[in-house]
């Protein structure tokens, strides 16, 4: 039985990870799995943040370098890098990040609106920020990451 308290609390869970030495997070409901890095196949003429495609049990999924996507430079090769496999609107994609930090459970009202920032990319792709012990984490709008209204040409 759901109590009144449960419905008003409305806790949301996020997976937080670091990319370009910053903390990002996406809602746990969008995350399918977290995998070790494995070599990708490059795509012709792809934008710099699309590293290529990878075989995920028979599906071909594109891998995005999240740091590069946010203009924080290419993620350096490191065996500790992981790929966060996420779903968005029927699309399955992989996000290359430096490390996954934690699962964060917060109530909705803790999520703050993104302050007025100048970066076009950040403003479009970050829906809000959540204060955490080590500072804050940026909540990603996966749709905006995958389908930017105008691509930042490298």
């Amino acid at each position: 039985m759901q109590t009144l308290e449960d419905t008003t609390k409305s806790e949301v869970e996020f997976v937080t990870f670091s990319a370009g030495e910053q903390s990002f997070s996406i809602e746990i409901t969008q995350v399918r799995e977290i995998r070790r890095w494995s070599p990708v196949t490059a795509l012709p003429h792809a934008p710099h943040e699309v590293l290529g495609v990878m075989n995920l049990r028979g599906s071909v999924i594109p891998i995005y370098d999240l740091a590069a996507r946010f203009g924080l430079g290419q993620t350096p090769e490191n065996p500790r890098n992981v790929i966060v496999v996420a779903m968005h609107g029927g699309q399955t994609v992989g996000l290359l990040v430096e490390a996954v930090s934690e699962i964060l459970s917060v109530s909705r009202e803790k999520i703050q609106e993104t302050p007025d920032i100048r970066s076009e990319v950040a403003r479009q792709s970050i829906t809000g920020v959540i204060p955490i012990e080590t500072g804050m984490t940026r909540v990603i709008d996966l749709g905006a990451v995958l389908h930017p209204s105008n691509w930042s040409v490298a």
Binding site: T41, L43, P44, V53
Partner: peptide
């Protein structure tokens, strides 16, 4: 034949992808 479109989109010069014997993807 594996679709590239379903998770990504069309890529100029490439019609689809496939998975090779080593598990890697070839266009």
């Amino acid at each position: 034949i594996k679709s590239l479109e379903s998770n990504f989109g069309s890529v100029p010069g490439v019609s689809a992808a496939t998975v090779l014997g080593d598990g890697r993807i070839a266009l």
